[in-house]
Amino acid sequence: MDRYTKQTIMKGVLWASALITISFLVIIIGFIVYKGAPAISWEFLTEAPRRSGRLGGIFPAIVGTIYLAGLAVLVATPIGVGGALFLTEFSKESKFTRFIRFGADTLNGVPSIIFGLFGFAFLVYYMGFGISILSGGLTLAFMILPTVFRTAEEAIRAVPRWDKEGSYALGATKLQTIWHVVLPQSISGIVTGIILGLGRAAGETAPIIFTAAILNPVLPESIMQPTMALPAHLYTLTSEGISMQNAFGTALVLIVIVLVFNMLVSLIRKKKALRR
């Protein structure tokens, strides 16, 4: 086989891999849209479920998911960005910093059900937060913390040394340099991590089924109350065989939410690419 043929074959194989990747996406989304679209109606989006979700809508689950994912991001963002700033700007590379990074990566690899179990034992019982938005939101926050932390760290580390030195050379303090030079240049990367975390927090079932989610279709009035949530509702609808159509409807809503977040991420990346 000559070199040219080899290259052509290789290119074909790679092309096929790329095609398969995108086909999976198209097939999954297409399937869910096909099966779920009939369930979607104004009523489905704005009303509470009736008869365990056989009838009515998913409004309390949408609201609950927003609360849970929102709380998770609210907690994980300052800790993650703060930790990333500490590692990049306030400490020198050492065993300790490598250990923190290793810890974050390990945390990232922990299965989400373990987070759920931990949240259940530690937050629900030991801390006494009960089955609540607080417990679920914190559990999700622990889960997405490594993502927020590591993306922020990478974004901050990518700020060129000479830009920071330019600031210091003008008599800026460290905090002023972080505020005026480091954060503006890394903010799109940081936000990318936050949105990725948001999407993950919205979609995960395991961390919330022991800590926050209930089937009772009421709107929560405080973060000390439990709530419905989309992934948990979807899980119940399917596993109890309540209504496949509504399960797909719920899946469609969830996937739209996650896709919107992903689109935001690529939008931010594109905008960043234009600026530099």
Binding site: W162, D163, E165, G166, A169, L170, H180, Q185, R275, R276
Partner: peptide, 12 residues
């Protein structure tokens, strides 16, 4: 004050 080897204006 200092001026560096590579021009390093801030991206503003």
């Amino acid at each position: 004050g200092m001026v560096f080897q590579k021009p390093n204006p801030f991206p503003m």
